[in-house]
Computed example of a mutant assay.
Amino acid sequence: MEVTHLITHSGGFHADELLSSVILMRLFPQAEIVRSRAAEWITPGPGRIIYDVGRAFDPEARVFDHHQRPAPLRPDGQPFSSFGLIWRQFGRDYLRALAIPEADIDPIHAGFDAGFVLPIDLMDNGAVDPSVAGPLAGLTLPVLLESLKPVWDDLTPDAEDRAFAAALPVARSFVEAAIARAAGQRRAETIVEAAIARAGTDRILELPGPMPYGSAIGRAGAEHLLFVIHPRNGDWALNGIRKEKGSFAQRADLPEAWAGLTDEALEAASGVSGAKFCHNARFIAVADSREAILRMAQIAVSQATN
């Protein structure tokens, strides 16, 4: 469809219409952003997409507001902001515009919606309990983006529009980084799944390089795995595997005698020539060769299982 104007409200801005603009500008780079509350602009018409203003949610008319009653709700009853509505309508096309493989479109769309879009929706609608947000509420993405608004006594006529334009590339960087990270996660999962199949019943998983592996190991049900080894910038790393996402507890720690040691001291404590470093918290160690790191991993497995 030909889109000539992306229309949102004037005045102070919030994260939802700012992030919506990021999505729409990628898909319709020729379109002009108009920030207005004037009826002649926020009325549906040819070439227009209207969002966060208009008092209607009508995808066929290309109006995506959430301030009216009844407000649009997700199937589970949680509220949409304009960002959620725009993402639902245009998110898959946005991912295609970023060259995300077609097989990954639906899972990345759903994951980004749950992990990035929904929190924006909830905060915009005041649906997040302050006790949940906690003392770091001032560091959430919506608050940080809105901190780019002009100061209260900047009364120049175009202050809000200039601030909105300056905030757009900042918002874009967060969205594109999150999508790139999700796409990278999908690529890593394919590699890790193949490595798990090769490892069989071995306790040590060998990967071709540093990459996220926890979710793929958990999804594969590979509870027997205790450690991961991989090459890293000219040396080799030995990593633990977290028991669950968000926890620092490992399925098995590296030997206590290695904690905090480096070079000759670690070689002496481990009996492995080429051992270079072990973190004091015993979740990572480094050696100068595959042979050395594999030997360290074998020793760690032996101590953890005896």
Rank of each mutant, 00 (worst) to 15 (best):
H14W: 04
H14K: 11
H66F: 07
A166Y: 09
A216P: 11
A127V: 00
S82F: 00
H109M: 05
I293A: 07
L139G: 01
L18Q: 00
G184R: 12
A237I: 03
Q30F: 14
D124L: 11
W152C: 12
F64S: 00
L294Y: 14
L168F: 07
T156E: 04
D76C: 11
V175S: 00
E2M: 03
L73V: 09
G134W: 00
E60W: 05
L139P: 05
G260R: 10
W152T: 12
I284M: 15
I284R: 10
G138M: 07
F164R: 01
E17Q: 08
I100N: 05
L205V: 02
L136F: 15
R69E: 11
G240E: 01
T8L: 13
A99P: 05
I293T: 06
N280F: 10
L118W: 01
A15D: 00
D288H: 04
E206C: 09
A133E: 05
A39P: 01
A183W: 15
A177C: 12
D161H: 15
L238V: 06
I49H: 06
G214P: 03
E291R: 11
Q68E: 08
W258Y: 05
P169H: 02
G54I: 07
D263V: 02
A167K: 13
T8F: 15
P150Q: 01
M296V: 10
R62D: 09
L238D: 06
F283Y: 14
A269F: 10
L225C: 15
S215N: 14
E40K: 05
P44E: 03
E291Y: 08
R203Q: 01
E40C: 00
P142A: 13
A252T: 09
L238P: 01
T305D: 01
Q185P: 13
I49W: 06
F283E: 12
A178F: 09
V143T: 08
G115W: 09
A199E: 10
Q298E: 06
P119A: 10
P72Y: 04
F112C: 02
G111F: 05
Q30M: 08
A103Q: 14
V272T: 14
M25T: 06
S273V: 10
D129P: 04
D65L: 04
T201I: 07
I23R: 04
A285W: 05
G271R: 07
I229G: 10
F90T: 03
R282M: 01
F64H: 03
E60S: 12
H14R: 02
